[in-house]
């Protein structure tokens, strides 16, 4: 029984990572090797694919765009959700309950269904094919998730700390900046990492809201490869590795934080 259980989880874990190991291996083989002996280990490690990938597709530009969009959107998203989480966990006011209810409904909204109106709103705001469009849209679409991660975190912090600050004559803003922000920074980091990964990975909205190299993000580079350079496998596989590397690295480094955040955000919904 025990052995069966272990071999079951081990085989599922293997199925989960073999595709990635295989892609890493292929990114280090020449195109001839990939076609003639796809299973064999590389005869000699070839790193050319990585350089070629950067030359063939505007991957460098896309990487820069992705970083800019993900960084700004993460700052915006975390700040906005932190402020709202502070107001709705610490104080009782008219909008408290409606905000919490609406956010929990939005958490499970199939966002794919909103693609056309978001597209037309972006056009209406004259933001089509800009980084700003993706920054704003990503910030908004992921607000419910970040909001609940931060709320869960705020609820674990004792109220007495701010009450002490208030007694000392601190204003609303001061107690938020001096007491709450430092105390909740671990929660903000968790929400921020998850939002960063969300921006880094998002595909459909990037595909629909951008058209030129100035605004396109990394996931779209793959589309570029499959449609235009379908035969340079080695470069293609190298591009995939460069693209997934940041998310995998972030996940491995911040695993505990990410797990904590995913659990807090998902269970609330």
């Amino acid at each position: 029984m025990k052995i069966k259980g272990y071999s079951y989880v081990t085989s599922i874990a293997l199925i989960s990572i073999i595709p990635f190991l295989w892609v890493v291996m292929l990114s280090l083989k020449t195109n001839e090797e990939i076609i003639n002996s796809p299973l064999a280990l590389p005869a000699k490690l070839v790193f050319e694919g990585y350089g070629n990938a950067l030359e063939i597709a505007p991957l460098g530009q896309y990487l820069i765009n992705s970083v800019i969009i993900a960084v700004i959107s993460t700052a915006l998203n975390v700040l906005i959700s932190s402020m709202a989480a502070y107001a709705t966990t610490r104080f009782d006011f008219k909008l408290r309950k409606p905000i919490v209810v609406i956010m929990s409904i939005s958490l499970l909204l199939p966002i794919t269904a909103l693609i056309m109106p978001v597209y037309s709103i972006v056009r209406f705001l004259d933001l089509y094919d800009t980084k700003t469009a993706l920054i704003l849209v990503y910030t908004a679409l992921d607000l419910p998730m970040s909001f609940f991660i931060l709320r869960a975190f705020f609820l674990t912090i004792p109220k007495e700390l701010e009450e002490a600050a208030y007694i000392d004559g601190a204003s609303f803003m001061q107690s938020y900046r001096r007491v709450i922000l430092p105390l909740t920074s671990p929660g903000m980091i968790t929400a921020g990492i998850l939002h960063f990964i969300f921006c880094w990975n998002e595909f459909l909205y990037a595909l629909s809201l951008t058209a030129s190299h100035n605004a396109r993000t990394v996931p779209l580079a793959l589309n570029y490869f499959t449609s235009q350079f379908a035969f340079d496998y080695n470069a293609m596989f190298s591009a995939v590795i460069m693209m997934i590397f940041p998310s995998v690295l972030l996940f491995i480094i911040f695993q505990e934080k990410i797990i904590e955040g995913l659990t807090a955000g998902a269970v609330k919904g």
Binding site: P19, F20, W200, N201, P219, N223, I244
Partner: peptide
């Protein structure tokens, strides 16, 4: 891992 990388990749 398959849950953390982009669905497009």
């Amino acid at each position: 891992i398959p849950n953390m990388i982009s669905a497009s990749a």
